[in-house]
């Protein structure tokens, strides 16, 4: 005659190890599915850091008063946008009384209206022509390709070992009528 032995308290050794196995498989499944949902939303740490740099730069940079008379600082991303939520986080924030707006551009059309332009690495082929187009306008150009500041860009975010650092081309900044605080200049890499 069979008695009911389904009481979990009386799990024997065999059942316990099976239970552990099932638990492991369940955890694996949970972690896999959770991982997918998460990784699609979160931008790479590199671009979170770069977004945070851009936000910090805005505090240390002064545009000519007539350029920011509209009360808004327009931050533009030219080319591939790898910031995702990281840059959206600063949209709508205020810096020294100016509201930040984030825009995305595929081409250079209308780029002149921006106050800061992040030139994505995807634009390397036409970087020189973009910089020429923005040359002499009150625009803070920010790049991420080697030699960006040599080509006339104002700030370049460079990868050094595992960190992101930045270099500043002060002549290019002056040329674009942008004043960069001494504190920021000091933190930048020597060019």
């Amino acid at each position: 005659m069979g008695t009911i032995r389904a009481n979990p308290i009386h799990l024997n050794k065999y059942h316990r190890s099976r239970f552990k196995k099932l638990l492991l498989i369940a955890m694996l499944l949970v972690s896999v599915t959770a991982g997918y949902a998460w990784s699609e939303k979160t931008p790479a740490i590199e671009y979170q850091v770069k977004a945070s740099y851009i936000y910090n730069f805005l505090q240390f940079v002064e545009w000519p008063p007539e350029a920011v008379a509209g009360g808004t600082i327009i931050v533009c991303v030219l080319g591939e946008d790898r910031f995702g939520a990281a840059l959206q986080a600063i949209s709508g924030e205020t810096v020294r009384g100016q509201k930040i707006a984030v825009r995305h551009f595929k081409g250079t059309e209308g780029l002149d209206a921006c106050h800061a332009v992040f030139v994505s690495a995807s634009e390397l082929a036409r970087e020189q022509s973009v910089l020429q187009r923005l040359d002499g306008r009150p625009i803070l150009t920010i790049g991420e390709t080697s030699g960006f500041t040599d080509r006339g860009g104002v700030i370049n975010l460079v990868r050094i070992a595992n960190n992101i650092r930045f270099e500043i081309n002060q002549q290019a900044a002056e040329h674009n009528y942008i004043k960069i605080s001494a504190q920021l200049l000091q933190l930048g890499l020597r060019r």
């Binding site: 979160t42 936000y55 990281a86 924030e93 920021l184």
Partner: peptide, 11 residues
């Protein structure tokens, strides 16, 4: 959400 605080992290 994000690994770092975009607005609250110093240079």
């Amino acid at each position: 959400d994000l690994d770092i605080d975009i607005k609250g992290t110093s240079i």
